[in-house]
Design a protein around this nucleic acid. Structure first.
Lengths: 147, 147
DNA sequence: CGCCAAATGCAACACTGTTGCATTTATGGT
DNA sequence: ACCATAAATGCAACAGTGTTGCATTTGGCG
């Protein structure tokens, strides 16, 4: 389906999101885009540390937080309680659609479906965001060749 | 009317599961049964530590693992990456309903409302739980207009 | 009662994530 | 192109969560 749209450069995505374009952010976002599964901090650290300069442990945490804060990455928790990060496709607003969270790999998938209307709240409660979270196992983790 | 099933004592459940009946296990299982929400290690520790003898930190971890291993408790990960435990009997009540999370105080409230029907999933995806997460501010946090 | 495996308590450790602060760097103004 | 500035980085130290090793206690049994 992606025929007329050229692959967006991570640097442009970062700039468009209103964040400084730094080497660390570009490399992390590249790694997240290249990954087919959500990556945790340790995996990113070893993967990027293999390069020339390496990335500081704390800087990597802050880079990831920055990407998540600017909507360029999604943060989830895997079954072991470790945060995993995945790149969002284009700059998307995940305000009005459904998220599917894989309990196996921690991946977040955006479903093409309308979220249901918000329920009525008790008195005094103020509505913020409505998130329809569907959990289960994605196609990769449901593969039958795993006992 | 009166009761279809008498409430089983935690000690009997533990014995029936084939585990030694110890004070720690009974107290933890009682706490899990009494709780209307899954509890994390820290919450259990402070709750049980308020009693007379208190429970060792490590022992509590091992008690929880033991309960999970014997099928008396369920282990899950919350959004912050912390393990939460619930008694197996109590899980059915909270299987699928709506949670309201207050972004001010972090409290979780269970709304009496039917969860919406699950959406259709892509091929290969297996549906686990459907969680309708509504975020906002609760009555207590909304009352004083702090901007 | 007495045995023994299991459970406990204590200390120390490993891993994940965070905070403070000095230094470097990306970006806008001139 | 240069400089100023605020943000980003690197380093050190810390905090929270969960685990392992080992000596001691205890539940369950004959």
């Amino acid at each position: 389906m992606a025929s007329a749209t050229p692959p967006p450069l991570p640097a442009d995505l970062i700039r468009a999101a209103g964040a400084k374009v730094t080497r660390g952010r570009v490399r992390v976002l590249e790694a997240l885009h290249a990954a087919r599964q959500p990556l945790c901090h340790a995996e990113l650290e070893s993967q990027l540390g293999a390069g020339e300069p390496g990335i500081d442990r704390v800087t990597l945490y802050r880079v990831l937080d920055s990407l998540v804060g600017h909507g360029l990455a999604l943060k989830a928790v895997d079954t072991r309680g470790v945060f995993r990060f995945s790149a969002t496709g284009a700059q998307r607003q995940h305000a009005s659609h459904i998220h599917f969270r894989c309990t196996g790999c921690g991946g977040v998938f955006c479903l093409k479906a309308e979220p249901p209307p918000p329920p009525k709240l008790p008195r005094g409660f103020r509505l913020g965001e409505v998130e329809f979270d569907v959990r289960g196992t994605c196609a990769g983790c449901s593969a039958p060749d795993r006992a």
